[in-house]
Amino acid sequence: MFDLVSKAKPVRPGKIYGAPGDGMSSHISLITALLIFALWLLVTEMGWVKPLFLPSPLAVWDKFMVAMTEGVSNSTLTQHTLASLSRVLGAFLLALVSAVPVGILMGVNRIMRGLFDPIIEFYRPLPPLAYLPLIIIWLGIGEFPKVFLIYLAIFAPMAIAARAGVRSVSTEQIHAAYAMGATRTQVISQVILKAAMPEIFTGMRIGIGVGWTTLVAAEMVAAHRGLGFMVLNAAEYLASDTVIMGIIVIGIFAFAFDLLLRYLEKILIPWKGKV
């Protein structure tokens, strides 16, 4: 009966009796994805659903090749993708340099909080499609209003995350900094901002996700290029293979960015969850 004891494998502390849900899950996710794909292949190849409702993976792949070479909706897939990427990333970067400072200031200053809180809390739950007409009326139909619509959608979650992050700093850490001669600006930039980084990263991940969700709405405004535009355009002709192909491309990019951010988070914020 001592066999059992001696056979126990060494594990990291907290692995079994510690943090809930610890351990690898990516192989399980991969199996899920493969199962869904197999099911898709099965129901389409067997002719159980009509191609109009759900085209087969092979048809989607063919469409993908066509889109890469000849193009659909007047541009190649690469051009559509680049157009959308620049919009989402542009909006994301704009939000990063504006929402994070605003969120931090809201966290540390009651006047800033009073000023921005009603604005952010009011527009945040509104669907972008609801205020899209206003943006067109105010800003026209150029490239800027498209980026601006996505920017607005990203701004709110990032500002809210940065504001919440301010609370991760402990009073002692702030006191200690002051007692070492820090000025208020130094406390904000070198202590509070750093302590808020884990939350800011979470905000960035939510933000870029929201950005991709808003893409299609943004490209409803007189776009002639972009993944969202491509999908909308295909929908008018009931080209469900192009629609699905577009969805998959958007999904892959959104997922890739999330992975990138998670990776950056691991490298840049190694202390997350350890204090």
Binding site: S170, H175, A176, Y178, M197, W271
Partner: peptide, 17 residues
Amino acid sequence: PSADRGVVFQKHALLPW
């Protein structure tokens, strides 16, 4: 507070980054 009075806290209050 100022740098001429240093403080050591009960909980360390160091900066984890």
